[in-house]
Amino acid sequence: MTTSLAPQTDLDPMRTPAAAAAHRIASGTAAPDDSGGAPALSVRDLVLEYPDGERGVLRALDEVSLDLHAGTFTALVGPSGSGKSSLLAVAAGLVPPTSGTVTVAGRELTGLSRTERTGLRGREIGVIFQQPNLIPSLTAAEQLELSVHLDRDATRADRKAARDRAMALLERVDLADQAGKRPHQLSGGQRQRVNIVRALMASPALLLVDEPTSALDRERSAAVVDLLGALTRDEGTATLMVTHDHEFLAATDRTLNMVDGRLTD
């Protein structure tokens, strides 16, 4: 991948991920997609083992290989304890694998320091948890802008870019008129939509979603899954969603099954 020598890009490594993303959006210097169709996520021969008392070792992931491409929405299903959450954690750079490789947006996570993994996660990986975990005192717009406002290196232009990006995303999910409301003033479905677009603030290459419909009724669940599919295509991200709701799989492009740490189509 060719690195631009423009001054704006040179400053990015000195910024926190939130400020760097906002700065690239504001200045129009976001790197073009010159990956030649390379996967947003590439996992090869991934093994994750844990100590397991008398049994010695528990193999949570067993020789997993997987490619996810930009603009595709993939569902991951399987029984509890099959390794789904372990795969999300390793793909997010939260847990180092025992062996194998994980590459996100062309950058291999294996061998990176914790600080480097955190930086990559801030730039290229969005994570959506089961519960929105919104901050009670912040408005919907402030939830999205928070990371930039906490960044002491963020400039006025960074903060304006973050505000513009937040409002554009809230409008995309029909919440622009709710931007000034706090979580207790929003419905469960609205809170989950804020949760979703918060994960998209930095325009990540990879979006990892853990059971987004677990606390929603059927109608809201269907709407959330449809929204994830639309945002995946509109934003050009690669989305991997862990779910137990098989009735909504038609909204995805592909379904993978995980059993005993192994993947099958």
Rank of each mutant, 00 (worst) to 15 (best):
A251G: 06
T2W: 15
V259G: 09
D45Y: 09
A222C: 11
P79H: 07
A250V: 02
V77M: 05
L175M: 13
L11P: 13
A18F: 12
Q185F: 00
L231W: 00
V209Y: 02
G37N: 06
A179S: 04
R123T: 07
I135W: 03
R198Y: 12
E235W: 01
K84L: 02
P97M: 07
V173Y: 02
D34I: 13
D265K: 09
S214E: 09
V104K: 06
F248G: 01
V43H: 14
R233S: 10
L109P: 07
R59K: 12
E49D: 12
A179V: 02
L240N: 00
A205T: 08
R198Q: 11
G122M: 12
M167S: 11
V95A: 13
P183I: 00
Q178I: 01
A92V: 11
V127P: 07
L88E: 04
A166S: 13
G126W: 04
R55E: 12
K160R: 15
S113R: 09
L231E: 01
G28V: 08
V47K: 06
A26E: 14
G93V: 03
A251P: 07
A202S: 15
L48E: 03
V173I: 03
L256R: 05
E49P: 11
L256F: 10
L76Q: 04
V148C: 05
P7R: 11
R254K: 15
L76V: 07
T118G: 14
L249R: 01
T29K: 10
L249W: 00
S113D: 08
L87R: 00
S35D: 03
L87N: 02
M258W: 01
S4N: 05
E54Q: 05
G93R: 00
L11S: 15
M167L: 14
L186I: 04
D210Q: 11
A251W: 00
R220D: 08
P79R: 02
R172S: 08
G56Y: 12
T2D: 15
A91N: 00
D158H: 05
E235C: 00
A30N: 01
V95T: 15
L134H: 02
P136A: 01
A91I: 02
H244Y: 11
H23I: 13
A250R: 08
I125R: 05
T98C: 09
N195L: 00
V259E: 11
L76P: 08
V90P: 03
L175K: 14
A205M: 08
A30M: 03
D45K: 06
R262M: 12
V104S: 08
P136H: 01
D177K: 04
A19S: 13
P32R: 07
G188H: 01
Y50G: 02
R114T: 12
E235T: 00
H244T: 10
Q185W: 00
H149S: 11
N133D: 07
L58E: 10
E63M: 14
R24F: 12
L227K: 09
A238W: 10
G119Y: 12
L41N: 10
S113F: 10
R198I: 04
V95K: 11
L200E: 10
T243G: 05
A215C: 06
L68T: 12
K84F: 03
